[in-house]
Structure formats: structure tokens, C-alpha cells
Design a protein around this nucleic acid. Structure first.
Lengths: 147, 147
DNA sequence: GCTTTACTCTCCCATCATGGTAAGGTCCAG
DNA sequence: CTGGACCTTACCATGATGGGAGAGTAAAGC
């Protein structure tokens, strides 16, 4: 156990936490923390003398923003735009809304595509006896036979 | 123009076509034709003396099966199973139906996930003025502020 | 016959977001 | 001082697909 209370308290006092604590606090994995830094999504990550990463409160906040955005399905590039708008006090809400609206459209397109697959498959499975015999409308459809 | 009619007719007589023709006939790209062969999804691809691939009518049929399966969202591994069932005259339709039913479940899970994102985003964009002002409920949500 | 064009071959790299592993360094409790 | 939990970088893998380079081949037109 390395998580001694005094040590953690000291870290909190200085306002900086290591990558493991940042992962816990943000819900982003350690692996992804390094990745986001590498691709420039999270900048100005401090280092200890031993080259350990150190994260401040604002960076944890940014990481939660990223995490929440990923949960809503935004791509990294979209998040990059959202972050720069978030940091820009002179932004217009219209520009944010535009990104969100576009994302909604993409999601709905994807949903329609998947739903089309489901509809076809449900029809086919409905027609399939699902017993021990080999006759199968599903395979007939896949093989292009007009059953 | 290389597609001379006599030449194509000759190819059809021999029952073998080159990779470009196979791609056209199956709807699978040339790139994917090579890939499917490499991963063992399509076997016994013949070659000319000059090492060109040659596809027979049965292989084109198999490729259409694969194409159709991909269109319905089956993974390569699922298609591998479907193909072996297709080729097995002693199969039970139940085993095919099982694969399809499982796939439907996965699709529906994915749809529910995406629909959840859409619902949240639609609520947020509905609350967002989308004008020139910086105030934005979308960013407020992403940054974890309880607006 | 030679040139041009269209096709084919293999091999390697990129996507997207994420995880795994290996080999080594650091920090702290016991 | 040792053990173990943690950190570092570097590389590889996923799944299905596409892109491109460099070289060879087939056929049409001159």
C-alpha cells in the first residue's frame, strides 16, 4: 500500500496528483492519459524530478470533460474543437450547437443503418425453424437464393 | 480498354475470372478479395502462370455470401462460422439461428447505446440557444456543471 | 514490334480508440 | 534493504478497410 494518507494529503495540498490518481479522479485510464497528452489533447503536463507526470485540478477538470464527451460518442477531433470552444470565452453557443447537431446526425445515420440490419435479421430468424433440420431461410438469404 | 468481348467470353467459358472481374461480380473490393484469401475466408484461389488470381463461379457465389453477410453486420469470425454451416449439409438450422439471434442482440445493444447518446444530446441542444452568446448548456454539461 | 494503358502482383503503412506487455526506474512501508 | 506498488518509454495488437509504392503482365493501337 502506497496510498498513505499523509502522502495523499500533501499531494492534494500542492494541487498536483500523479497519473494513477488522475485516472481515478477523471475516469480516464492511465493508458489514455498518456495518449491524450501525446496527441496534444491535454497539454502542459508537469513532471517530477523523476519524470513522473503531475496533473493539476484544472487538468482533471479537462479530463472529465473529455471523458464525458467520449461517453457521448464525440470523436477525438470533435473533442479538440469542443475543448477550444470551452476555453474560448468569446465563443458563440451556435458553434457548439453546430458540432453537437452534426454529431447527432451521424449517430442517427448509424442507428438507422443498424436498425435496418436488425429488421432484416429479425424477419429472417422469424422465418427460420431453428430445429435440427438443415433447411434455413437465413442461409438462403445470405447465399442469394430467392426462397 | 482491355475488356474486349471475345476475351471476356473466353474467360466465362473457362469459368474463371481475374480479381477485377471477381470484385465487380461480387461487390467485394479487390483489396478485400486479397485480404479474405489471406485470412483463410476464401480458399483454393487458383493462379495463372503469371501468378494472377483466378476465381470460379462457386467462389464468386461464396464472395456474394460474404458480402451480404458483411452488409448485415456480421463479423468476419461470424461469417467464418456461417460459411462452414452453409457448406455443411448436415447442419441444423438451429445453429444458424443461434448465430443470427446473438448478432441481433449485439446490434440492439449498440443501438440502445447510440440512442442514449442521441437522447442526451438532443436534450442539451434543445436547451442551447445557438446564438452569438457564449453561454452554452452543452459545454456546461460536458464540463460537469449542474446548470 | 513498340508504346501506352489498364490491370495485376507483393509489401508496407494508416485509420480509430483502446489495451497489452516488456524492460527498466522510483517511491515508500516494513 | 527488500518487496511491492507504482511510474517511465517503446512496441505490438485489435477489425475491417483503404492507400500507395515499385514491379510485372496483358492487350490494344500504332
Amino acid at each position: 500500500m502506497r496510498k498513505t494518507l499523509p502522502e495523499r494529503a500533501e499531494a492534494l495540498e500542492s494541487g498536483l496528483v500523479d497519473i494513477g490518481q488522475a485516472a481515478l479522479a477523471s475516469g480516464v485510464s492511465v493508458k489514455m492519459l498518456r495518449h491524450y497528452e501525446e496527441i496534444g489533447l491535454l497539454r502542459n503536463v508537469a513532471r517530477t524530478a523523476a519524470n513522473y507526470r503531475l496533473y493539476g485540478a484544472q487538468q482533471i477538470h479537462t479530463l472529465r470533460f473529455i471523458k464525458r464527451s467520449r461517453t457521448l460518442g464525440f470523436s477525438i477531433e470533435e473533442i479538440r474543437e469542443l475543448l477550444s470552444l470551452w476555453e474560448d470565452r468569446r465563443r458563440s453557443s451556435a458553434s457548439v450547437k453546430k458540432i453537437a447537431a452534426h454529431h447527432i446526425e451521424e449517430l442517427q445515420t448509424k442507428i438507422a443503418e443498424l436498425q435496418g440490419m436488425v429488421n432484416t435479421l429479425q424477419h429472417l430468424t422469424h422465418c427460420c425453424a431453428g430445429d435440427g433440420r438443415p433447411d434455413c431461410p437465413i442461409l438462403d438469404d445470405l447465399s442469394g437464393e430467392q426462397a
